[in-house]
Design a protein around this nucleic acid. Structure first.
Lengths: 186, 186
DNA sequence: AAACGATTTTGACTTATGTCAAAAAAGTCG
DNA sequence: CGACTTTTTTGACATAAGTCAAAATCGTTT
């Protein structure tokens, strides 16, 4: 079974006929390090799961790249804005390692949401779970200093430090690379 | 029509028979300033809309109250954690003004989600929209300094300054009340 | 109006983090 | 391997924000 369907099934019941139809809309691709899944300003987007690889999402603010999340293997990934609003993506999604992933386009997914109400239970739960993750990140940014935020990252995404460059991690934590370098020295 | 149903209908189609059933589960209450909708640790929760009044959500961290959001009139409000996970609320929700609100319990809402798949379309869209709001807040905390975050708040919730005490706003922005007082003096 | 408590402001000082520039280290490619 | 680019580290200094304590202001109740 492809990894995206497997992931969907973790969130709710997926009747065989819907699974069958869904599977027709799922495609697999392999992209090189540095390639994009999605570029800021595009309306076309989708949901995906990485089988092997690593991705980051970022946006530009005051001519700087701000990393908003990192995506590891076997996690549902995507950009909420173009999915929900049919609006241009606020963020770009770029592969940090050569990656193989399975995806469904926003267009196809929204079509399935309309056609099969059961799919919305899965969609609702995915979105609700993502809300909880976002709330934790807000709490971390709101109350913790640089070192505590770094430790939170180590705790929840331990391999981040192995696979992601210091500069990218610093941006994600909302600090400079110099500060992160000094935190690490300890 | 009660404000909660009206709000639900903004997110998607609600067939009359489901609306009718839904309306039986919606209750209205009036609470005094200082009263709670929900206390940290409770599993029982729900979604609500305030007709008149104001509410805040907060949690305790290192013996301090950290405000996570403020809820004004005619906005869907609630705590995602107990709704999604059936787990104890991470946050408390307390009225900052005497408030009249309409609510449905998590239990009843989850029952309706199971019974009527159409309801999940509404639930999915509410959660997705909330994700977008949370992402904006993350970006603000991640990239802006204290003064810029205060200006962002003024922009998106202009009456916050009129109705919410300086201390509560400072906590929401992740700064001390002294710092906010100095920003305001400018 | 007086008295009380809570909230906000102010001042002096400390600490965390940012900035800029340069050096060191690590990674990449012919 | 050696040259080149990118990333990380280091140092000196600047700035933003926190801490603590006291005074001022505001709100509520009698």
């Amino acid at each position: 079974m492809d990894p995206l369907i497997k992931k969907f099934k973790e969130y709710g019941n997926l009747p065989p006929e819907i699974e069958n139809e869904l599977s027709k809309h799922i495609k697999s691709q392999t992209k090189q390090k540095g390639d994009f899944f999605l570029k800021q300003g595009q309306i076309v987007s989708g949901l995906f799961v990485i089988e092997i690889g690593l991705v980051r999402s970022y946006h530009i603010k005051d001519e700087r790249e701000i990393n908003s999340w990192f995506g590891f293997e076997n996690i549902i990934l995507g950009s909420v804005m173009p999915l929900f609003y049919d609006q241009p993506a606020y963020e770009s999604i770029q592969f940090l390692e050569t990656s193989t992933y399975y995806y469904i386009s926003s267009k196809d997914l929204n079509m399935l949401y309309k056609k099969h109400h059961e799919m919305n239970t899965i969609g609702r739960k995915m979105a609700e779970e993502y809300c909880v993750i976002l709330e934790q990140r807000i709490s971390s940014l709101q109350t913790e200093n640089a070192e505590q935020r770094y430790n939170s990252l180590l705790k929840f995404q331990p391999d981040a430090t192995q696979r992601i460059s210091l500069g990218h991690i610093a941006s994600y934590l909302g600090i400079t690379k110099e500060t992160l370098s000094r935190i690490r020295k300890k």
